[in-house]
Design a protein around this nucleic acid. Structure first.
Lengths: 204, 204
DNA sequence: AATTGTGAATTGATTCACAGCT
DNA sequence: AGCTGTGAATCAATTCACAATT
């Protein structure tokens, strides 16, 4: 797949830096040093500089980084410059909360449509819930490349196979199971029980 | 802090192995090789073996691992042998979905109580929502060590400071911000926008 | 014969330390 | 003078390859 040489952890940190920069913009700060920004992001200054130089030389020696400029560069690098359409599959407890979550738009994402076996209307939901049979049409018509999976474990792999065949290239998976995808498709897993178990280990 | 020498990623994978073992138990499989289990978990066999030997020699050469036995060992290692009390702070969209999420109990966690500024009753919620002023009492009475934070960004650090002072040692943070904690307190972050941005980078 | 457990080798990520700009 | 950008050095994680064991 493309972009093989940049570590995934680096790209995660880019998002964190972007968050911190947005805060600085609100405060009308014009310039920030690697030391200050790294502190806000919870990393070492040298790591911040190394991360950024994977993508270009955005700073000015002796001065630091221009807040607006760096933020714009990161938006470009992360591919969030224009609104990215996303579909949500599975509108149970978690899915309906995600549907109501307002933070996506602000960060450059728009939930184009949601799908569920059961299409009864959801209160307070700004997005219609469509039948699973509509997935192919919506994905192709809007050239949707990203999907959020919030279906039960037993349904997850089947849904993934289907949407990948329609052209989905990236999946945010909330189903607590390992899903397999062909090369060229990217999966990030969010598993609440795994996160809690992990913490549980460290507090003993 | 204790347990410094085991990489966090190793502990994450332990949870994944545990998931796969539970599936094998359902299928009444008695024995599994590192090759088969690693395949199910999406890792290399050598990594599985290396991960496990951090904690002991659980296998039998020539045979593989006993499914029941290894599962019990991992439960012990992960500290999920007995039900661990957890509190939830912030019962908005995401928080109320977490409250209704049934998966926690099955995995060894119990949401003892939930807290919010606004204590109006939540439909379908099995757990009462208490006033923030009750946090100290509940944490101390039940010796709660783990908390899930689902409050707005602006409130997150303040809440964290407070609960840490009452004895919370591990935090699962859904607020989209970097929180700082003293040594000896563990934080895992789940940030939906960061996950989507990360995927967005890779599909360009 | 099969499969684990593990030291060695490799690969990858982070940090250091300072040269190079502004 | 101050701060970035970066090669070198260090530290960490993964994979290999095979000896040890059943």
């Amino acid at each position: 797949m493309t972009k093989p040489d940049i570590p995934r952890k680096t790209v995660y940190r880019l998002s964190i830096y972007q968050r911190c920069l947005q805060q600085l913009r609100v405060n009308h700060t014009e310039t920030v040093s690697s030391e200050a920004l790294a502190k806000a992001a919870g990393v070492k200054p040298s790591q911040l500089r190394k991360d950024l130089t994977h993508f270009g030389n955005f700073g000015t020696r002796g001065l630091g980084y221009n807040v607006e400029g760096l933020s714009a560069q990161l938006t470009e690098v992360l591919g969030t410059a224009r609104l990215q359409p996303v579909i949500l599959i599975g509108v149970g407890n978690l899915g309906s909360a995600l549907l109501r979550y307002a933070g996506f738009n602000k960060e450059g994402f728009e939930i184009t449509a949601a799908f569920d076996r059961d299409t009864h209307p959801r209160p307070n939901s700004p997005t219609a819930v469509l039948a699973m049979e509509e997935m192919e049409r919506v994905i192709r018509e809007h050239s949707v490349k990203m999907a959020i999976i919030a279906v039960p474990t037993s349904a997850a792999q089947g849904v993934v196979n289907e949407i990948v065949s329609y052209g989905i290239q990236a999946i945010l998976n909330f189903a607590p199971t390992v899903i397999s995808v062909p090369d060229g498709v990217w999966v990030n897993n969010v598993d609440l029980a795994v996160e809690l178990e992990n913490l549980s280990y460290f507090i003993q």
